[in-house]
Nucleic acid binder design. Sequence first.
DNA 1: TCTGTATAGATTGTCAACAATTCAAGGAGA
DNA 2: TCTCCTTGAATTGTTGACAATCTATACAGA
Lengths: 248, 248
Amino acid sequence: MSGPFRFSASITPPGAAMSGPEAEERVVAAVVEAILGHRIPPGTRLVERELGKASGASRSAIRNGLLRLAQAGLVELSPNKGASIAQCSPEEARHVFEARIAIETSTARTLAERMTASDRARLEAFIEEERHAYEAGRMEDARHLSRRFHLLLAELAGNPVLTGFVRDLINRQPLLSWGSRDHKPRFCGNEAHRAIVAALAAGDGEKAARLNAEHLRELESELGAERGNTLPAGEEAASGAGAPAGNQ
Amino acid sequence: MSGPFRFSASITPPGAAMSGPEAEERVVAAVVEAILGHRIPPGTRLVERELGKASGASRSAIRNGLLRLAQAGLVELSPNKGASIAQCSPEEARHVFEARIAIETSTARTLAERMTASDRARLEAFIEEERHAYEAGRMEDARHLSRRFHLLLAELAGNPVLTGFVRDLINRQPLLSWGSRDHKPRFCGNEAHRAIVAALAAGDGEKAARLNAEHLRELESELGAERGNTLPAGEEAASGAGAPAGNQ
DNA sequence: TCTGTATAGATTGTCAACAATTCAAGGAGA
DNA sequence: TCTCCTTGAATTGTTGACAATCTATACAGA
């Protein structure tokens, strides 16, 4: 029942057997990319042998990579049973969103205080790029940029510890949307991001933080509402009660 | 010159060769305990062979344990050079404190809203235990409880994601205080904790969050002030040389 | 037909040996 | 005396084989 899917992306330039931390990094990156690209559903088993064939990495490198992924919350390791893509319960999804709001609220405030002209230029250029992707219908790119936007805010705030947390949380995001009806990932609208940048540019960290929190809550409630159709959720549905099944 | 210290705690009940995840867990716990107990200074090399002798764990288990510790920010891994206890620069220390404030502010607010009578009783009992430890001069216990208090707040708030972050940050805390003059770890006063609990019990999450943030900032400034006194000489001072006196 | 059991295959966990790299000491030469 | 090179020990990284565990299939019995 778990998953008819198999992870079998060919990543290696043929004949290249990478070694060491490089191979490990490659395995991690491949799995993360597949998750972000919404190509592996939660529950998919990650067999060491398959990963080895696909990536050309040694078994120990794969093992280390899986360990790192497990600590990032992206895969689950059960003893003697191996690794599989993590399955997020609706409750966990709520926790991830709450954590993002907590941390990004802080980074938004910090960034508003320290923002330089260069930061502002970079953010506005980023928003433009995001808009172009949307308008050109390049949804894959738009999704990527949309995630990258939140990470960029954290990076510019200048706290690597918080940035690391945000990265992990963002990477988990696609796993949450697999519960929705059409299995299509939700992503942020460009307008919301534009408003946040405007608030930051005006030095209003409080407003930027508030907008960002509302933005994330909306994203969560869309997810929750869709999930409400497929799951007989009792208590969890309370948060998404206001927005019935409006999807596209 | 880095470290004359060696990690050689005998942990094993003699003749017990643990296996599997249990051994790995034991290695991790042993290192974490040693850090929390302020028994290993940053920079101490962790040689796999030594860890194996001390813990009775196999080399692969040790390797996995070190990987986990590295991801928690407690040890640094350099390729082909092995593992050593992480050295936190003053800048990193600031980031850790900032991260704690960001996250604990959120958990304090959440907890104030959801707090039950049982939570309140537990917190007050905890504070009492902490006070007893202080008054009895059991400083080791007091330090332990003092850390545990902040973790307990996060746990009671009910978000495992944020709790995990807080745990990692708290575990890193002792590494920050090794730069201070007497190498003695700073720890929270019981009064500050009592005030936080009072605010939480009154349902005033805003106040609790503010008190907690001030509490942490005070801790940080004590650390920073002491570090400013001792660092100007020596090889490590390279990072602190940029800001001779006038930071803060 | 259904249930419980036995067996075979596949997968993970562990270990020991080997290869590669780093670090420190020692010595030759200017 | 100082610098640079060589050499050796110590440590980490990797590989392959073996043991332990789980999963699925086939089968006997009610």
